[in-house]
Nucleic acid binder design. Structure first.
Lengths: 178, 178
DNA sequence: TTAAACATGTAAGCTGTTACATGATTTA
DNA sequence: TAAATCATGTAACAGCTTACATGTTTAA
């Protein structure tokens, strides 16, 4: 499937970037639906290069420090667009260790159970607030053909997802206290 | 972290089971938040056995066919309960290849984009309906100290999650058609 | 009698995480 | 001058998927 390959190609299709810049994107911007560590990114870039899907120019920052700025090739763009057009088979529901715990929660007393739910709630509230703040950068829907439109769509998805999780946690707390 | 270990211990804590039965649980009952193939389960059971957390009795079905029925040991129960009481640090948002695609969707024409969203919608509607049907088995909230209470909670979570995804997909379709 | 379900295992390969390893540049 | 950030890589290991491998029992 090689999703990381296409995540990288997609970003490079927007503009040339270094491995380090890609790494930052994955750990901030895209983190709501994709991410990767540098230890995965650098080898993948190497692979994409041998496959002829990207090229790079070496730049010098300061006196010595070399950085490789990667550019997507024509072949890379073709490959990326082909992937983008494919229909996605619904992914399996992602594994969720907290729900696994809740599944077995009848072995916990009510107090502990509620405490755990409240703890999760707190963490999700934080995440939701951060997402809402990011969303303030979009006072209106960005144009459909701009990079920012995709960003906006997934951000909206992340926000409603967090709202749903919070509603579920409240529902659970309600059942536990009944 | 070894979540599979605790998923297995948790199920064996309910009742003794064979690897095959565990496998079925993971691919049907629990699939909304955890799953594993038999190729992962058998080796894990072996490991749990060497760690002294489970034991097994060999049963014969028919004339020859041997099956191992695993039982959790006292040590296994202790280990499981310890895990169950631990507070869960919020997991990273799971990777989502469809959202990755939507992130880059400005390179698709409106028609293709809407078609993809509709396709996802169809698949989620199917899943939602299946979940709702399962939920009919719970005409009322099961008692808090029964196994079925945990099943019910995560089932409710799965249903509201699917509803949220459908709402998001509709929102996206709306933005695309604007 | 044959297909589906029962039943258990191993092997190869891919994905991803954590840790190891090194060094330059910028900012406080 | 020290800390943070920039910058690139490799290694070991954990987790998971797909395929390989074999054979039994049950129900249509």
């Amino acid at each position: 499937m090689r999703a990381l390959k296409y995540a990288i190609l997609g970003l490079l299709n927007r503009r040339p970037m270094t491995g380090y810049e890609l790494s930052k994107e994955f750990n901030f911007e895209l983190a709501e639906f994709w991410y990767a560590n540098h230890s995965q990114i650098y080898p993948e870039l190497k692979k994409l290069h041998t496959e002829g899907l990207v090229t790079y120019d070496v730049e010098i920052s300061g006196d010595i420090l070399e950085t490789k700025r990667y550019t997507i090739t024509e072949q890379g763009q073709k490959d990326f667009m082909q992937w983008l057009h494919k229909d996605e088979k619904l992914q399996r529901t992602p594994k969720n260790p907290f729900r696994l715990r809740m599944y077995f929660s009848n072995y916990l007393d009510t107090e502990t159970r509620v405490q755990m739910l409240e703890n999760q709630k707190m963490q999700h509230v934080k995440r939701l607030n951060a997402l809402k703040k990011t969303c303030e950068q979009y006072p209106e829907t960005p144009p459909k053909d701009s990079d920012r439109f995709g960003d906006f769509l997934v951000l909206r998805g992340a926000i409603t997802r967090e709202e749903q999780v919070l509603a579920w946690l409240d529902e659970c707390i309600g059942y536990c206290k009944e």
